[in-house]
Amino acid sequence: MGEKLPRVPGGARLHSDGLSRPVQTLRVKMVLLGSSGVGKSSLALRFDKDEFRSTTPTVGCAYLTRVVHLSDVTLRFEIWDTAGQEKYHSITPLYYRGAHAALVVYDVSQRETFVRAQVWLKELEKQYIPGSTVIWLVGNKVDRAQDRQVSVQEGQSLANDRGLLFTETSALLGDQVCELLLAVAHRVHECIGAQQGGLSEWQETAHVDLHRRDTFNPFVSCCKVGP
């Protein structure tokens, strides 16, 4: 876990990287879900550039890539940073369909985001066969310790109940963020990479990954999140 991740400048434009390496590069689709303002984009920015900026609400969905090198394989994370705003919920399934990893993020200083995270988990569970997706519960903004409304125990027990993994992070300070990505990478590689056709190889001119799309039923309705 302490391994220092190689910094990759301009993560989205790494096309020449990887191919020259002898190790295999696999594509991992990861989606960030959660309420508006919990810090999904800030986490994504940490993953991508390891910096923190105050962001404005995401419009639609932001797409970033980040390459993570494990000992025997290179994973190219395609990160879909979804907007938490309700008006975009109808299109969010577009982004989480076929994801190998889903980070469900809440803000530890806002209890309602924790409640909302559970709704997201339910939504995800409806769509996924257990084992095909690594779902990670992330409590963000631990730097706001004085305003904490959701305890570590609560987060951990929710994760245990549902068989998820759990981490608390601070995108502001960078606490546990890189560790989280690395842990996700290991987990995805262990669980899905081992399966037949679990992860596809990434090539310079990769096109739409039709393979995974076919394994799921097309969506009938978009969003049942609202009350």
Partner: peptide, 30 residues
């Protein structure tokens, strides 16, 4: 829309958007 959201600088954005004068009832994907 582009100017009001600094989030666009983070990566690639894919978002539904309606052009009201073109057709007020349907979405384009930008």
């Amino acid at each position: 829309l582009i100017g009001a959201s600094s989030a666009f600088q983070a990566g690639e954005i894919w978002t539904p958007i309606c052009l009201p004068l073109f057709n007020p009832d349907c979405y384009f994907y930008a």
